[in-house]
């Protein structure tokens, strides 16, 4: 699935694009979720109504995994692994794993509000996907409460 297809699947044809800059405060909180600062200075996203779609990269073991996350009303509606580059741990691409995130929300401690089962032999990829879902929920919260005012900071 391509990014465009993922966006169209979750937002339809009327989505708009936004850009969220990761200022210092956001990078510090990002570090609590990813264990490090996000690599890029800004993140592009798509939105329509109360929904947002995020396409983010995170390294599993050695190579980045491109992960698409769709969110509505601060809860995950869809997670898809768009590009998997690692040689091992590819089981995280399968719906039996990604579907566990459906309905998940972020707690005030920036954790998921529900347990997600890992996959034996794909520990690092599992951590990468789980952390990116937390990150996407955080970014959604940063944009949705007052999208217009925060989009340009």
């Amino acid at each position: 699935m391509t990014t465009n297809e993922f966006v169209a699947k979750n937002l339809g044809a009327d989505s708009e694009r936004g850009v969220l800059w990761l200022n210092e405060r956001r990078q510090i909180e990002t570090g609590r979720m990813l264990g490090h600062r996000y690599e890029a200075l800004r993140v592009r996203y798509w939105y329509h109504g109360g929904r947002t779609v995020w396409v983010l990269d995170e390294i599993g073991k050695e190579m980045p995994i491109t992960i698409g996350v769709a969110i509505e009303n601060a809860r995950v509606t869809d997670v898809v692994i768009l590009t998997y580059r690692e040689s091992r741990g590819g089981e995280v691409r399968h719906p039996f794993f990604t579907s566990q995130f459906a309905g998940a929300a972020l707690t005030t401690d920036l954790l998921l509000d529900r347990p997600v089962d890992g996959i034996s032999g794909a520990t690092l990829s599992f951590h990468a996907v789980r952390n990116i879902v937390r990150f996407a929920l955080y970014l959604h919260d940063e944009t949705m409460p007052s999208t217009e005012s925060q989009r340009d900071d």
Binding site: N4, A40, R42
Partner: peptide, 11 residues
């Protein structure tokens, strides 16, 4: 790094 855009993802 400011941003990475995956052109191959349908752009």
């Amino acid at each position: 790094l400011e941003e990475r855009i995956s052109l191959g993802q349908g752009f």
